[in-house]
Design a protein around this nucleic acid. Sequence first.
RNA 1: CGGGGCGUGGCGCAGUCCGGUAGCGCACCUGCUUUGGGAGCAGGGGGCCGCAGGUUCGAAUCCUGUCACCCCGACCA
Length: 494
Amino acid sequence: MAKELKDLTSREENYSQWYNDLVVKAGLAENSAVRGCMVIKPYGYAIWEKMQRALDDMFKATGHQNAYFPLFIPKSFFSREADHVEGFAKECAVVTHYRLMNAPDGSGVVVDPDAKLEEELIVRPTSETIIWNTYKNWIHSYRDLPILCNQWANVVRWEMRTRLFLRTAEFLWQEGHTAHETREEAITEAQKMIRVYADFVENWMCVPVIMGNKTANERFAGAEDTYTIEALMQDGKALQSGTSHFLGQNFGKAFDVQFATRDGGMDYAWATSWGVSTRLMGALIMAHSDNNGLVLPPKLAPIQVVMVPIYKGDDELKNIVAEMEQIAVKLRAKGISVKIDDRDNVRSGFKFAEHELKGVPVRIVIGPRDLAAGTVELMRRDTLEKENISVEGIDETVAAMLDDMQRSIFQKALRFRDSMITKVDSWEEFKRVLDEKGGFILAHWDGTTETEIAIKDETKATIRCIPFDAPDEEGKCVYSGKPSHRRVLFARNY
RNA sequence: CGGGGCGUGGCGCAGUCCGGUAGCGCACCUGCUUUGGGAGCAGGGGGCCGCAGGUUCGAAUCCUGUCACCCCGACCA
């Protein structure tokens, strides 16, 4: 391991650089040999697995089942829904051949020109088309509905510029795809799932979010309505953290998914889709980290408690580790994951720094003085506060501390987020707040795409959402001065 | 696809202008001393200098070509 871990520069100077360094140094992920693609390292993947498990439980609890659909999608499927192809065409990886051969001149391996595919295959950027092509065979009657499927998969979007976790050419996600009998039922489903996401992000990741509708301009390609959760990062930029779409009958019609209705007629199925991705890892990192490294919510930390011995000589080490093992048994009995760091090739100070960098929530240090006194030193990662406590009842103390941290990390993020929401009523103020403070801006908007785009062109700020809880309020558009009936949420974003 | 930058042990870099046969820090290995906040000393291993040509007695260095990657735009969330 490296002393180079030491220099996490101040976050204010260059937040992007700082973020990238942190992701790499904390051992979460790194760039791969493949352009724009990411290697998720074991520690990062362990966090992702915890997220997956929690989300999967929530999906099951809301009646969904997992399934799996193909990686490749015939090109023609994309032509079925005009908006959809428009939205994804520019970033698709295309498979054109199915065989390699040795180059005739011996220079290596080349694509066999005789092995050209009749129809090109697209590596899925999202799976609506292949799934609805399949649903056509599954749905004949209203009795077949609803269909509530989710798949855990990888997708590819050939982005020009990538950033670890936030935007990679290939990413891991889940995508739910449901089919319903009525418009109302589908809308209810889409709204239910955005609430599931908000629940997960707030209660597991400790990241507060604002739920709302996307504007027509920011809507998913092929959707009638898109719901989003928007989080705020510590540099004042917003991050779209999850979306849920009401797709109307667009895909039902595009793939001719008709069913016999209760009253003897025929109708097209109503659709939703919803997804969250490894981008959530980026949100987790950028929402809580400090200059010492990651701060992980206890519920998502692969290791919740690390124990570091302070010792001279093998005998002392042996005694301390024996004590630690007894404590570990008690902690594990409470479902707490524990690691005893008894490495003898690095010093304790190095271990402290390393575990802080990796965001381990609680550290227990035991040295000869503690051993004699029956105490330990306890430190919590979020506040870096240390206290000396008795070994008696340590399992209760640590369990309570982990619970408290889960709440406290969220509260801290919430206070920051709330302090970064500014109500703005003039164009001058809008630009000034955006440049000097950042964060979310609540302002009136005249509801037109022209104004939305003009604002984006001038300031790079976009409408993140029209919050569900935005109260009715008469006002004038901050840009055009035309009448508006509620405030919408603006921000610069990732 | 425009504009800029870079390619040298695992990582980060110096050396390139002005050619002389490769160096520094970290990491790694061995030993001793250390251990309550990122250890010290000593010794050691590892690089056809992105690739291909050319100039030259001699090329990391000069010339030509080529391939990567990074940053800023455009694209995208």
